[in-house]
Amino acid sequence: YSPCGGTRNKVIPHLLLTEPAPLAANQDESTNDSSLRTLLTLCDLLNRELLVLIGWAKQIPGFSGLSLVDQMSLLQSGWMEALLVGVAWRSQGAAREELVFARNLRLDEGQCQAAGLADLYEVLRHLTAKYEVMKLSPEEVVTLKAMALANSDADPVDCPDSVQRFQDELHEALQEYESSRREQQRAGRLLMSLPLLRQTADRAVQTFLRLHHHHRVPLHKLLLEMLDAK
């Protein structure tokens, strides 16, 4: 695992092991409107990804030790950030600057515009470009995802000390990983990319809420519940 002679910290290897396999999209066939079909297919995928994300969160070391209230709060504020780390990672190097939501759901700028996702396209491409320049390793991606959840600034926090410990353990794992690669400055760079991730996720949440409330796009129950929690 470590090119520099092993590391004591087991958090990142555990995150790599428990990283869920990417889901495939189920093409919606309820409408002839191709843009609406794209949107419904995407919302169905997001709903299933959310379900997987909740199961994944429970496996992050330290998460299940948090109070149920804090587990809920962190997920309610951080879920979109955690999901978008995956989308931006998959979209790296994609042809025609597509957004790769799944291997069988790749949307270019025109398709996003037609589906009412122009705003989302713009911010997600920006995030993807940033990660591309940083040349993230898989270890960094899984850690970034867990940190996005841990750092979601949920308010109020039920047990601040436990949440702080949860954050510290992930931060420590990242620092240990980067120092084992002799690239200590990367931990800071990764942390400095979190504001853009937060901003991108906020725009994504606004986009889906607008589509649902103003354009009556039907959403699955779990996705709607999590969007409403924002």
């Binding site: 429970k58 809920m72 997920l75 779990l222 519940e225 999590m226 929690a229």
Partner: peptide
Amino acid sequence: KEKHKILHQLLQSSTSPVDL
């Protein structure tokens, strides 16, 4: 927590079926 019923259920149990 009625408003966040599904998340609550999913976190409490990994096995109980949830209406999505």
